[in-house]
Amino acid sequence: MRVHRATAALMVCAGVALATATAPVSASAVSDPPSGQRVAVVDCAGKALERPGSFILACGDGNNVLKSLRWSHWTSPSAAAVGMDMVNDCRPYCAAGHFHGYPVRVRFDNPQPRSGHSGQQHYTRVTLTYPADRPTNTPRVVTTRLWS
C-alpha cells in the first residue's frame, strides 16, 4: 500500500511539473526579431520568453521555480528582477516534500546567439542572490548556466 501511495504521489508531482512547464505564464513569446536586438530567456519547453512572471529552474522535476518575478530592466546585456524562489525540501523524498519560498534577486545575463533561431539572442546564465533566508546549504549568491 505504501509503495502505491508513493508512486501515486510521484505521478501527481510529475504531472504538476509538466503542467507548470507547459502552462502559459505572464510573459510574451518572442519571435525572431529582424534587428537582432531583442534578448529572451528560454524556458523548459524551448520557448523564448521576455519578462516571464515565473520561470522553472529545475526542468526535470519542477522542484525549483522562480515566482512573482517583477522586472526592473530587460536589456541586451542583462535582465534583473525580484521575486520568490520556491524550493521543494524533498523531505522525506521529493514527491512528499514541501515547497518553501525565499525572497530572491534574479539576474539573467551573458546573451548568446540562439542556435537555429536567426537573429535571436538568449541569456545563458542566471545569478540568484538571497538577501535574507535561503535554502539549506545554499550560498547567498548562486550563479549557474542556463540551457539553450
Rank of each mutant, 00 (worst) to 15 (best):
R51P: 03
A6N: 10
V104R: 05
A21G: 14
A27K: 11
T143I: 04
C13N: 13
Y123H: 12
V65N: 12
P139C: 02
R145G: 08
A17C: 01
L128A: 06
C59Q: 06
M86T: 05
A45D: 01
D133R: 13
P77L: 08
D61I: 00
P33K: 08
R5K: 10
R125Q: 15
W74V: 10
L57P: 00
G97D: 02
L146H: 03
C94N: 00
D85H: 06
K47R: 14
P34T: 09
G101I: 12
H4R: 14
V106E: 05
Y130T: 08
A79P: 02
F108E: 04
H73C: 08
C44L: 13
G101M: 12
A23T: 11
P139A: 06
G62E: 02
R5N: 02
G46D: 05
S31V: 14
A80R: 15
V141N: 04
H98D: 13
T75N: 03
A14W: 09
V16A: 12
A27W: 10
A9C: 10
G97Y: 03
Y93D: 06
P34V: 07
R38C: 00
V12T: 13
Q120L: 15
A23F: 04
I56T: 15
V39K: 11
P103S: 13
H122K: 08
A40K: 14
A95Y: 08
T22Y: 13
G119C: 09
R125Y: 03
V65A: 00
T75L: 03
G119N: 14
L66R: 00
L128D: 06
Q121H: 10
D61A: 01
R145Y: 00
D89V: 04
S76H: 01
V82S: 11
V82F: 12
C13A: 15
G36R: 06
L57E: 04
A19R: 15
T143C: 04
R125H: 12
L66M: 01
D61R: 03
V126M: 07
V87H: 04
N64D: 05
A27T: 07
Q112L: 11
T22H: 14
D133T: 10
Y102K: 02
V104C: 06
S31G: 12
V25R: 09
V30C: 04
P52R: 06
A17L: 01
N88I: 02
S26Q: 15
R105N: 11
A81G: 11
S31Y: 12
T144M: 12
R51N: 13
S118A: 10
A23R: 14
G116R: 05
Q121S: 09
G101W: 10
A45S: 09
A96C: 10
A19V: 14
Y123S: 12
Y123D: 13
R140S: 05
T136F: 10
I56P: 04
A58V: 00
H73T: 11
P113W: 11
L49A: 03
